[in-house]
Design a protein around this nucleic acid. Structure first.
Lengths: 217, 217
DNA sequence: CATTGTATCAAACGAGTGTTTTAAGTCAAT
DNA sequence: ATTGACTTAAAACACTCGTTTGATACAATG
């Protein structure tokens, strides 16, 4: 087995374990066992556990929304459509339909309790996504909107996307798992968030179905 | 020192430690040291570490929004005002201006990674707050709104409140700590969330200032 | 005062952890 | 065939953790 093979086998095993249990509770013994390697191999290939964790995160660069969809936009794409696309891409990314199904869980942990060693690694994609969202909002908002308001709106958008992912368990508990499985797929969630945000920004009618409203003032 | 005094001293010390480090990383040694007690006292008074954790959470019942403000509502209070009040109370509760400043941090951990032993304990206040919010939404939404839509809207409200609290660190990182400290106090955050939600529900104009919009269709 | 029950403490135990050591194995180049 | 660097494997090490133990101090009780 080549050196890189061994490294990758350990990294492949480490990702899910770190994601499932967190840095501290994950043990190198379990990781090595799942990788079919000896306990000492982590230290041989990565020096120590912490560096293995850093390398694990380095390998799975968090998704950059920009790369996924900005190519699909033309100059005539409306800001509203861009915002919709952004939200859909973000929700999908957070739900983890990608190569590493455990990545969202790991990101969740890093968002809630950042590991000092990895703060820098995760900053970059966060900044990139945040900037992309802001560039969309700049197109939507009046030119003299103060930056802090634009930022707050950006957090409103991102916050909902993140929350629908992070609070899965509690959400399922509150509404029952039947309804959860029926109505909280990525597309439905993204559509809901898009409607809320576009309505709040005045780019779409309020989210109550038109003509059904009880008493419109 | 009486038995209850000793118990309380340990509980007082345990809260912040559990909140800061999580159940697993928190050590009974550190807790006992901060409580000025011997290492063995945790087992003497609480049996084991897990039970100490359960008792810690039992003692700090998460805040119930209802108790704080429903008394202030009359029959003429508009649903929009109720929603505003709810959001303000929730944000303030999550920011932890109360007796246990470390409670929000601990709740954050339990939301992201529920401890089996405490799931039941936290369910009740969550259910209560969720129900209160829904009763407000019932007044706002058309009578034939399907329940799952109402639930999604409720999560939009709660999600933003939670997110602005949970993602503090990352938010401060993205926008800079100066702007964060200037514009992310409980009142300002709650006002922002209220505006977004009321606008999305058609109970207030869109959040861009009236008359400033670039191109209204 | 002697006894009993409670509270505290230092010390140690046993399990689990990351890490190191040491020796054996592998394999290509000489 | 031999060398020598690289890799694997088993064991042990050093440390931390939760927990237990046994001794001690002390107050209440008869």
């Amino acid at each position: 087995m080549s050196k890189d093979d061994a490294r990758n086998r350990i990294l492949d095993a480490a990702g899910p374990v770190f994601a499932a249990k967190g840095y501290r509770a994950a043990t190198v013994r379990e990781i090595c066992e799942k990788a079919g390697m000896n306990v000492a191999s982590v230290n041989y290939y990565f020096g120590d556990k912490e560096n293995l964790y850093v390398e694990t995160i380095k390998r799975v660069r968090p998704p950059r929304i920009e790369e996924k969809l900005q190519g699909a936009w033309s100059t005539e794409t409306s800001p509203a459509d861009k915002l919709r696309d952004f939200i859909h891409a973000m929700v999908r990314a957070l739900c983890g339909a990608e190569m590493f199904p455990w990545l969202p869980e790991l990101l969740k942990r890093e968002i809630a309790n950042p590991t000092p060693a990895c703060e820098g690694l995760l900053q970059e994609p966060f900044f990139a996504n945040f900037d992309l969202l802001q560039s969309i909002l700049v197109e939507i908002l009046p030119p003299d909107t103060p930056p802090h308001k634009r930022h707050q709106i950006a957090f409103t958008v991102i916050g909902q996307c993140v929350h629908f992912r992070v609070s899965r368990k509690i959400a399922a508990m509150l509404i029952g798992s039947d309804e959860f499985e029926a109505h909280y797929g990525p597309d439905e969630v993204a559509t809901h968030i898009s409607r809320v945000c576009l309505a709040a920004l005045g780019l779409a009618p309020p989210i109550v179905e038109p003509g059904r409203k009880r008493d419109q003032v």
